[in-house]
Design a protein around this nucleic acid. Structure first.
Lengths: 138, 138
DNA sequence: TGAGCATAAGACGCGGTGTCTTAGGTTGTC
DNA sequence: GACAACCTAAGACACCGCGTCTTATGCTCA
């Protein structure tokens, strides 16, 4: 009863840890094959490891994270959801769970809780200046 | 094998969804009791619901998210980890998993997608200055 | 024709998580 | 003192997500 499954967050798919490891290869290698991913994630792995990757790919495809090209016998895969998009989704989910849906408290909390290094502070300041300047022009 | 449990992220505790619901009450009510939380989360709930909250509290205490005052028979609880701190932890963990530890992509996404008004931009800038000034003094 | 590699589909085990059961101690009231 | 009503403490439980593995089948080429 305490686990609220509102459609607002439930409908936007995320990836598990193993799926993310697969997506990393899909992002870095264009038209990657299952074999290539398996060889990289499980060096010297057997059939079981190969089909593990296959199952992960199958689930990622079901969640529309990647597209399959089956024109050749060994299928090729391309990312639909990029890293930036995934970051955005997770930030949004986080804002939903922790801040009533607003992204602003995420920023202010980060600043207030002193969880940023001096360097990151400077980066953030610069970023804000840039965006607010750009915002003004429109 | 694909699930990497490096101590960098594993050692920093997080809360589950039900635990978060409890923390919300701990944050909002000073010196809250289990009874008060249970009555709010499970209106008209029985013994089972009460002990559910109790178990969640026990786990939160084990993770040092709250402190127990057992001077009275009905124990009182106070938050150790605040919402801001929790947000910071989750953002850090996210940077770790998705950006190799760098916060920059997260900050970029946050600033761009949090539709800040000009006024909020100024407020945030001010906040950053204040905190970074305080930082320098120590 | 058989070896090698691909896909497809299902089953499995483990661990996390929310929940519940049970036992026992303290307080207040008749 | 006895009893009800509250509290704590500790463990067990069921469900489910997730990573993994098994098995069956098909295509390609020496």
């Amino acid at each position: 009863m305490l686990t609220s499954d509102m459609p607002s967050e439930k409908d936007i798919p995320d990836v598990t840890e193993a799926e993310l490891a697969v997506m990393e290869r899909v992002w870095s290698t264009p038209d990657v094959t299952i074999r290539a991913i398996a060889d990289e994630l499980y060096p010297g792995g057997g059939v079981a490891h190969y089909t593990t990757v296959q199952k992960l790919i199958e689930r990622l495809e079901a969640k529309d994270f990647l597209r399959r090209d089956n024109s050749q016998m060994a299928h090729r895969f391309t990312a639909i959801v990029g890293r930036e998009e995934l970051i955005g989704r997770r930030l949004r989910a986080m804002a939903e769970k922790l801040c009533g849906g607003s992204m602003t408290p995420l920023l202010t909390s980060l600043v207030e809780s002193s969880k940023l290094t001096a360097k990151e502070f400077d980066e953030l300041r610069e970023l804000i200046d840039k965006v607010s300047r750009k915002r003004k022009r429109s």
